[in-house]
Computed example of a mutant assay.
Amino acid sequence: WREMAKQVAHEIKNPLTPMRLTVQNFQRKFEANDPNISKKLADYTQTILQQIDTMSSVANAFSNFATMPAQQNETLNVVEVVQMTLEIFNEEYIRFSAIEDEIIAKLDRTQLIRVVTNLVKNAIQAIPETQENKLVFVTVFREDQQVKIAVKDNGKGISAENAARIFEPKFTTKSSGMGLGLAIIKNIIENYKGTITFETTLDQGTEFLVSFPINK
């Protein structure tokens, strides 16, 4: 938590510097009779609003992590919920597979959707935009009284340095998707006595495997 607090402070300080410089610059160069004053004011305002939005997203992420909603368990078909969740994505290279049409477990529907959405978003972001033959493969299956969800991509993989810290509750402004998202879903999964693991190979891809006990 100490490391997390330091990271939060760092992410909040980052936008403050350009905000301060923008205001100082405007104050120093302000000239009421400047024919371009409206354009300059719009540019300065846009810069400050962008930085405010950045700070707001950091605050929201921290708030979401700190206030996990209570679990509302219900008996549901995990295969159906996962398949439905994938329908929100527009990427045509996402593939779904399930050996069975129905695997019943007692879980919170919203939190299950959150887990799947987060992992699929990460998988999409792990694939470079310029890469050809993109693939995200989502599989649901039953094994040893567990329902398992695998999310595999053929992206850039995870470095050894990042792999060692991937589930730490830390903030990031990068688009890698690592940070609070994975910390939150790990929390959700472990609350169900489940597990989340991953295997990765640089420049070949990553596969996350989530396991939930089947408690009907």
Rank of each mutant, 00 (worst) to 15 (best):
T173F: 05
T201W: 02
F212I: 02
T75W: 01
V23Q: 12
D101I: 03
E190K: 00
I12V: 06
N64S: 12
E74G: 07
T117I: 01
E143Y: 03
Q146R: 14
R142P: 06
L41C: 02
A70M: 07
N90A: 14
D108R: 04
E102P: 03
I12A: 08
L119I: 06
I103H: 01
F137E: 11
Q72T: 05
V116T: 08
A9Y: 00
F167M: 05
R20Q: 13
E80K: 10
I127M: 10
Q145C: 12
K121R: 14
G177V: 00
V81T: 15
T201P: 10
N64G: 03
F137K: 15
T110W: 02
V79N: 00
K121Y: 08
T117N: 15
T130F: 08
V79C: 01
M4R: 12
N122K: 09
E190N: 09
Q83S: 15
T173L: 15
Q131W: 00
T22W: 04
Q51H: 09
A70D: 14
L112C: 07
P213F: 00
F198H: 13
R165M: 10
E31D: 15
D53C: 00
F89Y: 13
V82D: 13
I189D: 04
F30Q: 11
I158K: 05
F30N: 14
F167R: 13
K121N: 15
E87P: 03
L135G: 08
Q204Y: 02
I94A: 11
I94T: 03
N14C: 04
A164E: 14
F208H: 02
A105M: 07
T47P: 05
P169W: 04
K216M: 13
G157P: 09
D153V: 00
P15C: 07
Q83T: 01
N64I: 03
N77V: 03
N25F: 03
K121M: 08
E92W: 00
I94R: 08
